[in-house]
Every structure is written in structure tokens, then in C-alpha cells.
Design a binder for these strands. Structure first.
Lengths: 199, 199
DNA sequence: GTCTATATAGAGATAGAC
DNA sequence: GTCTATCTCTATATAGAC
């Protein structure tokens, strides 16, 4: 059993807290309570809250896009790839009792309270994800797995917005079950399945 | 020209601020600066911030659902009704320079920092809107205007999640233009339009 | 590296004059 | 109703001992 270093423990605690309550409601004291270190000590690793947030956003971005790219790289049907990509978001929600949203979804709501450099990190995350999604959608439409009309890039933004929004919405009620139902419905729409007469 | 009473000015300012920066980043001092009244005076109308928020949520809910119901009541094609409903959300984003999201979308992100009674107000708003959406979708599917597969209620939650999510996401880039593109794409999906060979 | 102690600023809220 | 003044609490952040 390998112990995690303090710096990582702080980042983990901070991320968990932000995904639950948001950046502005999260404090060094909260992190202190979780990690079991005095709040002054946190400043040794991250002098300001902005430093901490910047590191957090960058870490989350790297981690998430690395996973997304590994999904895209595998030679596989587009609908399988899309399912796997959607599962990445589902995993975030799944852990614990469905009170955690995507880090960037939470941050997105608090966008106006961030400094410019952090806003750029948010923009980058959104853009990168939409790009990955567009790639999967293109492949699917080429192969005939997907049959939706319209522009691939707009569709990518639509899906990304839905994922971020649903993660926030289902926290009030329904939780992971409702989230999965929404994703199933989305897959149906993308595959272009028709309404059958009596269902 | 009729002057708005102070109480309403406070509510308006508070709502505007929350839609931009969120509940936790909004302060009585901010409201004070906008309304031109000392922050202690605000407590005369709303003793606690919870009182203010409760009033705000209730007012927004009443206002929004009244509009939604007036749209549903009119004898009209379902796709026209849906378009009008979507326009309600678009109007929120439209005013000013696209830095305002839906009040309840912002609140949804900060859900964990609210007290129980306010969480219930959020749940009610989500449920009520999904109910209205489901009604429009049912009508559309019966009339043949909509041809999506799957459950109407799930589809309603999907659309609602998308609306709330997109409003947050497009604030980083794209703004109202991107938001409209997403809604157009959504309408296509609901109408069940097929992919045409060379578009 | 982690601690105690403290500086400083801002929050929500109350008391009481006008 | 609105003001000034003030209370209390918590936030971010720093200084310096160990």
C-alpha cells in the first residue's frame, strides 16, 4: 500500500469539493479538514487559491483528454466509441452518491468569477472535447452507424452541452438512473432510429 | 414613466447578479452598488440572504411557468409551441452580452450549498418544466410533427438538461449564435429528419 | 514541511438614530 | 424606509518558530 503525497491529497480533496459545492463555496479550511493538515500548510504547496485552481484545471484536462484520446485511437465502431466516451462522464457522477458534477461544468457556472487565464483553460477543455466528439460523430456517419441530419460540429456541441447540463440536473432527483436513461435516449437520436407504431 | 419600488429593484439586481456570477459570489454589497441603497437597508426587505433567494426562486418559477403555460394553451402545432418554449430560454441568454445563464441553471450548480427548502424549489422548477415539455412532445408525436423514438418523459428531461447546459457552455465562446445553432439541431433531431446523401 | 499566530478584507447580520 | 455604526464570523494570505 502506497501513500499519496500531500500535494496530490490536496488536489484530490479540492477537486472533490469543487465538484460538489463549487469553487466559491470551497475553502482552504474545507481541504484542511479532509486532508488533515492545517490550512496554512496548504499555502506551502499552492500559495494562492488561483494557483490551486489552475493546477486542478490543467490536471483534469490532461487526465480527461488522455482517456478520450485512448478511446478514439482504438479501431472500433463509432457507436462503441461514443458509448465509451459518454461513460467517462458517467463515471464522474457515479462515484459516491451522485452529488458530484463534472469539474468543468461546475466551473462553467462560476465563469464570471474567474481570472482570464482560467477562463482560457475552460474554453480549451470545451473545445478539445467538442473536437473529440466531432471526430467520433464523423466516423459514425461515414460508417452508417449514425444517421442524424445536420452539422457534425454543432451536434458535438449539442452532445457536450447535454452531458454537462444533465450532470447538474440529475443531482436534484433521479441521479445516475435518470442520467443513463438520458444517454440511452441520446444514442437513439444519433443512430436515427425511427418511432415505431406502437411503443 | 413609472418608478419601480425598491423591493423589486433589489430582486431584479439580485437575480441579474446571480445569473452572472452565482449565488455564493453575489453579495448584499453588490446589490447595494446597483440599486444605490446601503446594504443594511436591504435587510429591511429581506432579513437574510435565504429569504431573498427563496423569494427570487419563487418569483422566477411563477413568471417562467406562466409563460410556458400560455404557450401550451394556444391551439397551435407542437413544433411551433416547442420553438416558442425554447425561445423563453433564449431570451434570458439574449439580454445583455450573453453572460447570463438561467437562474435555475446557476442555482443547480450550487445545489449543495442550499438549504432543504430551496432545494425543493429547484426540484419543483425542473419537474414543472419537464412536465410542460413532455406535454408538447406528446402532442407533437400524436400529430406526427415529431418522430423521435423512445420515452416522452426521458426526452423531456433530455431537452431540459440540454437547454440548461448549453446556456452555461456557450457563455465561454460562441454565445447566442452557437446557442441558436444547437436549438436548430435539436429541432431536427426531434422532427426525425433523416440525413440526406450530400449535405 | 508543518505548525501557531496573526494580518486583512469581506461576508451576513443587528442596533438604533433620523 | 434608509442611514451610520458595529458585531461576528470566515475567507485568503503571510510571518516566523520548529
Amino acid at each position: 500500500m502506497k501513500t499519496t503525497d500531500t500535494r496530490t491529497q490536496i488536489l484530490d480533496a479540492a477537486q472533490d469539493l469543487i465538484q460538489r459545492v463549487g469553487v466559491n463555496a470551497m475553502s482552504y479550511q474545507d481541504i484542511s479538514n479532509v486532508v488533515g493538515i492545517r490550512k496554512a500548510s496548504i499555502h506551502y504547496y499552492f500559495p494562492t487559491k488561483d494557483d490551486l485552481l489552475a493546477t486542478l484545471l490543467s490536471r483534469y484536462n490532461d487526465y480527461f483528454l488522455r482517456l478520450a484520446d485512448s478511446i478514439i485511437a482504438v479501431p472500433e465502431q463509432a457507436d462503441i466509441k461514443l458509448r465509451r466516451y459518454l461513460a467517462l462522464f458517467e463515471a464522474t457522477l457515479d462515484s459516491s452518491s451522485c452529488d458530484k458534477a463534472c469539474l468543468y461544468g461546475m466551473i462553467g457556472a462560476e465563469l464570471a468569477t474567474l481570472k482570464n487565464s482560467q477562463v482560457e483553460q475552460v474554453q480549451a477543455f470545451y473545445r478539445d472535447n467538442q473536437e473529440r466528439l466531432a471526430k467520433i460523430l464523423s466516423q459514425g456517419r461515414d460508417s452508417g452507424a449514425f444517421r442524424f441530419a445536420g452539422d457534425v460540429n454543432v451536434m458535438a456541441i449539442l452532445i457536450f452541452s447535454l452531458l454537462e447540463g444533465a450532470m447538474l440536473i440529475v443531482r436534484t432527483e433521479g441521479g445516475i438512473t435518470q442520467y443513463r436513461a438520458i444517454l440511452d435516449q441520446l444514442m437513439q437520436l444519433i443512430k436515427g432510429l425511427e418511432l415505431t407504431p406502437n411503443v
